[in-house]
Amino acid sequence: MSSLPSPSILLEARALGFSRQDERVFGPVDFDLRAGDIALVEGDNGSGKTTLMRVLTGMLRAGEGDVLFAGQPFSLTTMGGAIVFLGHHLGLKSDLTARENLDVSAGLYGVRDGTSPMEALRVVGLGGFEDEPVRRLSAGQKKRAALARLLLLPARVWLLDEPYANLDREGIALVNQLLDGHAARGGAALVTSHGAVSFAGGEPRRIRLHA
């Protein structure tokens, strides 16, 4: 491979846009996400933040433009597992315990070197709640259990849709701490938020979507 197109660019959107029923939902937007980048997607309700996330995961087909992953056209079948997505629905089974939920994710995606489900749960502050069914956790604790998945899985790109919702001040600090750690390891993250967010590590990149 002689011409790897600048390997530090992990995720790239070129003139990306999406329309539903011929009505534009967002775009066209251009941005790239390099190793170590944390970018914040801003926009009011209805500006298409969630749709952008779903297009980037490959679940929705972009109407126009391209998504490139490490320079290659992105497709779910070939790039699966390179991205970890945290959406409005947390993807937790309420009848399973927090640890069982993480075990399922680990089975599907694999595990980052040097971590384990127990360790990840401890870091997000759910130590002692590992064997509690998710059903019995509070909304904030559920969110934390979903955040533990970010720590556990080896994916380099995180797509987080409203990760701050439902979290208290400590929880918000935890998300920022996770993001900083991820950036320091050479990962990249795209975060949506409809409110003002203060990052711990300085000013993030901002991508604005207009309704």
Binding site: M59, L76, T77, G80, G81, G87, H89, L92, L108
Partner: peptide, 19 residues
């Protein structure tokens, strides 16, 4: 689909058909 687990299955590295 309702609790978001389907999204996690779809983004997994394995073929969705197998899962």
């Amino acid at each position: 689909i309702e609790d978001g687990s389907m999204e996690q299955l779809m983004l997994a590295p394995q073929p969705l058909a197998l899962l």
